[in-house]
């Protein structure tokens, strides 16, 4: 049995005053890893490959344009909150790619547990930075690892909505994202995204088919009509993407509390929802064309 307590040099010398053993920082254990997959399943190599492949789509297809990117901190945790659209969301990759290439720091994206159950897709999703949206996962990433975390509080209600309801934000869940930011002591940074709605518009939804397939929604998109049912899943229309980063919202509350005032949480969540909604209306007012921006 090796003794865990370190012994300082002075103890052997017979000093009259016992020298308190100095606890040295324990040497890091040998960690014979073969891959660079971290504890969340993310691999920087997979991310780099993904960025390489996605960059032409980001630049030439969606022609993403940012406004206020300097409001996202270069270090320290922050919770990025955006509106969510398109049956197969096109906004998440654009946001992640933009921030990672411009700010050179990783973004972890929270998503529905459904991803973890899906073979192949779930594994790839996890390697490129997807994390299941468990409050404790978000807390660890924000508080302990001080990372950027992206969340879409509308969830599947945002991506499942039909084209007629585009750019009309749904309820922001039960404000869980505000509570996590409060607990982690990080600001919420709202992002308004224009373009995702038109990249894959939902024309019709079938709740019966969704139930039968065990999916949160089943959409028939315009892309499917144009490109066929298979290509229509991946072929986005080249809508012009514009993203506006709004002012960070900080909450003047102590972190690590068991619970926070429910009314305060709901109020803050609604405030953030309204600010994104207003930014969207403003951006749409100035938009000349869906395709050229």
């Amino acid at each position: 049995m090796p003794d865990d307590r370190p012994v300082a040099e002075g103890e052997r010398g017979g000093a009259l005053v016992p020298i308190r053993p100095i606890t040295p920082e324990p040497a890091p254990l040998p960690d014979p890893r073969r891959s660079d997959v971290d504890g969340w399943g993310r691999s920087e190599r997979a991310r780099a490959l993904c960025r390489l492949l996605y960059d032409p789509i980001y630049r030439n297809w969606f022609r993403a344009e940012w406004e206020g990117l300097e409001k996202i901190p270069v270090r320290g945790g922050a919770l990025l909150v955006a509106n969510h659209a398109a049956a197969i969301p096109s906004d998440a990759p654009v946001i992640i790619h933009g921030i990672e290439t411009e700010l050179k720091r990783p973004v972890y994206a929270l998503a529905d547990f459904l991803f973890r159950q899906t073979p192949v897709v779930g594994t790839i999703w996890s390697r490129v930075g997807g994390v299941a949206a468990h409050p404790d996962n978000a807390y660890r990433l924000l508080r302990e690892q001080k990372e950027l975390v992206l969340v879409f509080p509308e969830g599947t209600k945002g991506t499942g909505k039909t084209y007629a309801n585009r750019y009309r934000l749904h309820r922001f869940g039960r404000g869980g994202f505000v509570e996590i930011a409060m607990r982690a002591g990080v600001p919420v940074i709202p992002i308004a995204v224009v373009g995702a709605e038109e990249s894959m518009p939902t024309l019709w939804r079938s709740s019966a088919l969704a139930r039968a397939l065990g999916l949160p929604y089943f959409s028939v998109t315009a892309n499917m009509l144009v490109l066929g049912p298979v290509l229509g899943l991946l072929g986005y229309f080249p809508a012009k993407f514009k993203l506006r980063v709004l002012d960070p919202v900080s909450f003047d509350v102590p972190p690590d509390q068991d619970r926070y005032s429910r009314s305060r949480v709901m109020e803050e969540a609604e405030g953030i929802r309204v600010s994104i909604q207003e930014a969207l209306y403003d951006m749409l007012r100035h938009r000349q064309s869906v395709w050229r921006g």
Binding site: G39, L114, V131, A132, H134, D136, N137, R140
Partner: peptide
């Protein structure tokens, strides 16, 4: 399970 947190604490 798929709904698990990635790191279980003793009280979960």
């Amino acid at each position: 399970g798929h709904r698990d947190p990635y790191w279980f604490r003793e009280d979960m």
